[in-house]
Design a protein around this nucleic acid. Structure first.
Length: 470
RNA sequence: GCCCCCAUCGUCUAGCCCGGUCUAGGACACCGCCCUUUCAAGGCGGAGAUCGCGGGUUCGAAUCCCGCUGGGGGUGCCA
């Protein structure tokens, strides 16, 4: 059975790059009817926080990535300690008493000489007596893994193919810190092995870590999983996508009114494309069916907020069914303070306006005229007003509207009549109405507003503007 | 510095494995026209890539091989 995992560390909000890694791991597992595991990598007690963990979980669920098993590494320290002990006993690891300062100095010297830095292996040759002596003196120590010399560690990456790295490129690395907590390269192996992970899917920044981990698998006699290293996601300037590129966390997009299905869809298409298909809109189910690691690209992709926005708009205006759209948009309207007791009314509004905004946050602005009667007239709109003309137009509209139904159709008729009788341009009529109804120069169609909003409210707004311009 | 990875329109990509059908296809963005009370949406059309560069191999290369350049990542008692 295929078992994959997503293993984030809760030291920040879920980054788009990590989100995509999670998505690919999830799709791969589901495609093969396998298991998807969520494992919180919080071995760095200093930087990990509960808040980040909670947000991470929310983001994952929001994206629709449910997991079959859940683990937290901070709760498994006993297990890691046992295996670290075992590695020492088997002679694959040893205590190292070098202080951070000493190591920093070594590193500095290497840098000056222009040679690649590797840990000297000083403590590797300590005798048992020396070790006991130093321990009894209470000198803090880490545990390092003994890396064999001049050995090519090779693996077949599911995305990139053959990768070979020589052990001389890295020195003996720390697997247990001096405070007793285990490090990433060590725990990742223990957990992946113990949890039966068959496919390790992660970012390409982990390629250099892979040989270290393979060495540990071998030392412990664990079966080695398959590896698939995803290309990174880049910002507009082609450097690794990071905070300075603006909104890069899933949380940002969730709060900005993006649709999770659109987010999932877009992220999938960054670095992956299904064979032969020309289309770009896919349901989660289709993605599960189509996804295959062999179709993942090897080159890094630039994240385009523009395209994501476009896709989000497609989901808003045509993919989502109306009821779902209502559910998604309601929290946004409510938190903006709109009174939306009538779901039918909202449905009517959305039916006619869903093609005029790209995010749910934008919808808040766009839909204001349907919910709020009290609004300011924008400065641009005031400047546009030629009071006398507007007064005549609106007065006549009011008169004509009084004794008939207001609909998209009838308002057009009224506009036409007014236009003729006062000998004004169509544009004058419509923009006068628009300002009266919305306070703005642009927005959704005035006919739509008249058609949707109860007649009294339309008339009241017109009267109000008339009073203002007298 | 050293190691690893990558390289098709501005961007995401198809094609590359199994050379000819590629005068390189699609999408976003851009431009124009149509529709139209505004903004959109929609329809139609346009511009945009000598397939990073240089060598091979071949009758023929985006596709195979080598070198170079450029970009990215790693080089922690972070993950």
């Amino acid at each position: 059975m295929v078992i994959t995992r997503f293993a984030p560390s809760p030291t920040g909000y879920l980054h788009l790059g990590n989100a995509r890694t999670a998505i690919f791991s999830y799709l791969f597992a589901r495609h093969h009817n396998g298991k998807f595991i969520l494992r919180i990598e919080d071995t760095d007690l200093e930087r990990s926080t509960k808040e980040f963990e909670e947000t991470l979980i929310q983001d994952l669920l929001w994206l629709g990535l449910e997991w079959d098993e859940f683990y937290r590494q901070s709760e498994r320290f006993d297990i890691y300690r046992r295996y670290a002990q075992k590695l020492v006993e088997l002679g694959y690891a040893y205590p190292c008493f070098c202080s951070p300062e000493e190591l920093e100095e070594e590193r500095q010297r290497a840098l000056e000489k222009g040679v690649a830095y590797r840990y000297s292996g000083k403590c590797r040759v300590l005798s048992e007596e020396e070790v006991e002596h130093l321990k009894s003196m209470g000198k803090p120590y880490t545990i390092r893994f003994k890396v064999p010399q001049s050995q090519d560690v090779v693996f077949e990456d599911l995305i990139r193919g053959h990768i070979s790295i020589n052990t001389d490129d890295f020195g003996d690395f720390v697997i247990v810190r001096s405070d007793g907590t285990p490090t990433y390269n060590f725990v990742v192996v223990i957990d992946d092995a113990l949890m039966g992970i068959t496919h390790v899917i992660r970012g390409e920044d982990h390629i250099p870590n892979t040989p270290k981990q393979i060495l540990i698998y071998r030392a412990l006699g664990f079966p080695i999983p398959q590896f698939a290293h995803l290309p990174v996601i880049l910002g507009e300037d082609r450097s690794k996508l990071s905070k300075r590129h603006g909104a890069v966390s899933v949380k940002n997009y969730r709060e900005d009114g993006y649709i999770p299905e659109a987010m999932l869809n877009y992220l999938c298409l960054l670095g992956w494309s299904p064979p032969q298909e020309g289309r770009e809109i896919y349901t989660k189910q289709e993605l599960v069916e189509l996804f295959d690691l062999k179709d993942v690209n090897t080159s890094p992709a630039v994240f385009s907020k523009e395209k994501l926005k476009w896709m989000n708009a497609v989901y808003i205006r045509q993919v989502l069914d109306l009821e779902t759209l209502i559910d998604r948009i309601l929290p946004f309207l409510e938190s903006a303070g709109y009174q939306v007791e009538d779901r039918n009314y909202l449905r009517k509004v959305l039916e006619r306006t869903r093609d005029s905004f790209e995010t749910l946050k934008e919808a808040v602005e766009r839909l204001r005229p349907f919910f709020v009667d009290e609004f300011e007239i924008s400065e641009d709109a005031w400047n546009q007003l030629e009071n006398e003309k507007v007064y005549q137009i609106l007065t006549l509209v009011l008169e004509k509207a009084k004794d008939r139904e207001l609909s998209a159709q009838s308002i057009k008729e009224i506009a036409k009549e007014v236009q003729k009788e006062l000998n004004v341009k169509a544009k004058d009529v419509w923009s006068s109405l628009r300002i009266a109804l919305t306070g703005q120069l642009e927005g959704v169609g005035v006919d739509i507003i008249c058609d949707t909003l109860p007649k009294e409210r339309v008339l009241k707004r017109i009267e109000k503007l008339l009073q203002k311009i007298v």
